[in-house]
Design a protein around this nucleic acid. Structure first.
Length: 310
DNA sequence: AAGACGAAAGTGGTTGA
DNA sequence: TCAACAACTTTCGTCTT
């Protein structure tokens, strides 16, 4: 089993193309399932949900469920969900004498007060992760990972005295990066209740304190999602990725923002394939200005000898 | 009129003394 | 801590289609 169809057998390419277009992501509903080069897996370019690894075709299986059941299904097999805050309260016994009892009761109330407030804020944090994730159409797997990361931060006492909104937003940003489906800082800010500045601060703080290593995002990671937002198909997506690969071989991407590179590559690829998108269209979707798109696309087209006719 | 172009000044983050 | 610096944005006038 697990035969990666069409990896090198050139003849099957058309078949593959069709399959890509037909399938819908069960998580976010967008039609943007991508088969990854290198890794043998199919995943959603929009939300990052991995549908199949090693290409075991389970088309009929996941299709049979509606999205609600799907999310439950997707979690089957995991030992425990990290998104449930309450693992059961411990029971208190043996109160001793009445006087001691009173003292202990007071202590206990203090303690439970603290427990309650941290508990409350934890519940709030999880609900925020859930809210923002759903606004960003992130798959369950990323929500789980984000919740897990939040727990970790809590264990290291990194939360107290900081805004939950800032921390949770940063955690989502981090988790998306880790899963190879990066969101722009701006996209996170749009669903968050705090400023971009605060998210960045929390982001740097968490990276340092949890010493996480996050390699800079590749422009390629943004391409599928941006293409899908612009209504551009798989051929253009592939072309854009090809352009980026060539550009990075020539080190044209060094020191440049990955989003700008992705935007320019898509702009070029769309024109080359006769599906023109204006610089403004691309700018609106990617969040970089038309000026930056122009600068990048000038560099790319000149250095890579690509003739772009408008 | 819309889109593309590019100059010039401004902004926020990084780096290195 | 501060200044220099590079990437990017904002703004705006001009050219092209």
């Amino acid at each position: 089993m697990a035969v990666p169809e069409g990896e090198k057998g050139g003849g099957k390419d058309k078949k593959r193309e069709k399959r890509e277009e037909v399938k819908e992501c069960p998580e976010c509903g967008s039609k943007c399932l991508v088969r990854d080069y290198g890794k043998a897996e199919i995943f959603c370019a929009d939300c990052g949900l991995v549908i199949a690894e090693n290409i075991v075709d389970l088309g009929p299986e996941w299709r049979a469920f509606d999205s609600e059941q799907m999310s439950k299904r997707a979690r089957a097999g995991a030992p425990l969900t990290y998104r449930i805050h309450d693992k059961g309260l411990s029971t208190l016994t043996n109160w001793g004498s009445p006087a001691q009892g009173q003292y202990k009761l007071k202590k206990w109330q203090q303690r439970t007060h603290i427990a309650n407030t941290t508990e409350r804020s934890f519940i709030f944090a999880l609900s925020e992760i859930e809210r923002m994730s759903s606004a960003l159409k992130l798959p369950v797997s990323i929500r789980e990972a984000a919740s897990m990361l939040y727990r970790k931060a809590m264990k290291k006492h990194l939360i107290r005295g900081r805004s939950i909104e800032g921390i949770t937003s940063a955690i989502l940003y981090i988790t998306c990066r880790q899963y190879g489906v990066p969101r722009t800082l701006e996209e996170v800010r749009e669903v968050s209740r705090v400023s971009q500045k605060e998210i960045s601060r929390a982001y740097r703080f968490l990276l340092r304190e949890l010493d996480l290593k996050i390699s800079p995002a590749s422009p390629i990671d943004f391409v599928p999602r941006f293409c899908s937002m612009l209504g551009l198909g798989g051929d253009i997506r592939a072309k854009a990725i090809e352009i980026i690969k060539k550009a990075s071989e020539k080190e044209l991407t060094n020191g440049r923002g990955p989003i700008g590179i992705a935007a320019a590559a898509i702009y070029i690829a769309a024109i080359l394939n006769g599906e023109h998108r204006t610089q403004k269209d691309v700018s609106d979707v990617t969040g970089v200005t038309e000026v930056t798109i122009r600068n990048r696309y000038k560099e790319l087209s000149e250095q890579l000898d690509i003739e772009v006719l408008l």
